[in-house]
Write a protein that binds this DNA or RNA. Structure first.
Length: 277
DNA sequence: ACCCAGGGTAACT
DNA sequence: AGTTACCATGGG
């Protein structure tokens, strides 16, 4: 990790097995857009431009960064660069179907995104498609988020404190409006908290999230996987169900035990583009 | 009009 | 505990 304090840039050197395209478009996040030779968006509080070369990932903050060391560590964790994916892929590839799925998109990393943002966006994902999820999430940011340099950060919970169901309806959320409203209230009151989830086991954490109206097993699993590092959580949507039928009729292989969620992301991407409806 | 989309819930066996 | 209707919205 090389830090450039003058340009607020972090360079991760010697990385050849990450593909930003695959990572940002595999359905785990909804707010990274292609820009210049890479991608721009928010990694938590950091508004960034991220691009890669043959063996480097470069993260450039648009805004001044106080503590570059902290920024670097945050980005490494956000992009899961601090995990040994080579070992993980090798282990998963003991199973032939997993090997096939990984070969389709070997550069995927399961990111660790901010809790509140992940919770709300996956509530919006319910019975929805990825382009429209992106549209609604973007409308939320533009309407209630903080603007910096022409971009809008996803709002914090307190920025949504006074927002009504009717106001969410104006963002075309439809029947999901009341669920977003309930989630905001429960986060603000502390009835639902990331801290509780992080100190709980997977099952307890899942039940905790399912207190929220409109949050069932699928949305809970997405939040646990994409923001709380519960790697055993395995979100099941229509594509995963097709994959389970067509690729894993005898159940999931033993070699992904404990890390089912990461395996799930390879399977999801493979299924979306290779399986029949 | 009909189909689908990174589902949830209630009401059944 | 597992299956089955029904729910709800916008985009194609």
């Amino acid at each position: 990790m090389i830090l450039n304090n003058d340009e607020y840039t972090v360079v991760f050197d010697g990385i050849t097995d990450v593909d930003l395209q695959q990572t940002f478009t595999c359905g785990q996040c909804f707010r990274w857009d292609q820009w210049q030779d890479g991608w721009r968006g928010f990694a938590g509080p950091y508004q960034c431009y991220v691009y890669q070369t043959d063996d480097k990932i470069v993260v450039n903050s648009f805004n001044p960064v106080e503590d570059m060391e902290t920024f670097g560590k945050y980005m490494a964790h956000y992009l899961s660069l601090d995990m040994d994916y080579a070992a993980l892929r090798e282990k998963f590839s003991r199973d032939e179907m997993m090997k096939k799925a990984i070969e389709y998109a070997p550069g995927i990393r399961v990111m660790t995104q901010p809790f509140f943002e992940t919770l709300i966006t996956f509530i919006i994902s319910r019975n929805n498609n990825i382009p429209r999820i992106k549209k609604i999430v973007d409308a939320m940011a533009r309407t209630y988020g903080t603007e910096t340099g022409g971009m809008y950060a996803f709002p914090q919970a307190d920025q949504l404190a006074g927002v009504t169901v009717e106001q969410y309806n104006e963002l075309r959320m439809g029947f999901r409006s009341k669920y977003v409203y309930d989630a905001v209230q429960k986060v603000l009151s502390g009835q639902v908290s990331e801290e509780f989830i992080r100190e709980s086991d997977y099952e307890t954490a899942k039940k905790h999230l399912m207190q929220i109206k409109g949050v069932g097993p699928k949305v809970a699993d997405c939040v646990l996987l994409f923001s709380c590092e519960k790697w055993e959580s395995f979100p099941k949507d229509v594509w995963i169900n097709r994959a389970l039928e067509q690729m894993f009729p005898d159940g999931l292989p033993e070699c992904i035990k404990g890390l089912e969620g990461i395996a799930q992301q390879y399977i999801f991407q493979y299924a979306r583009f290779n399986l029949e409806k």
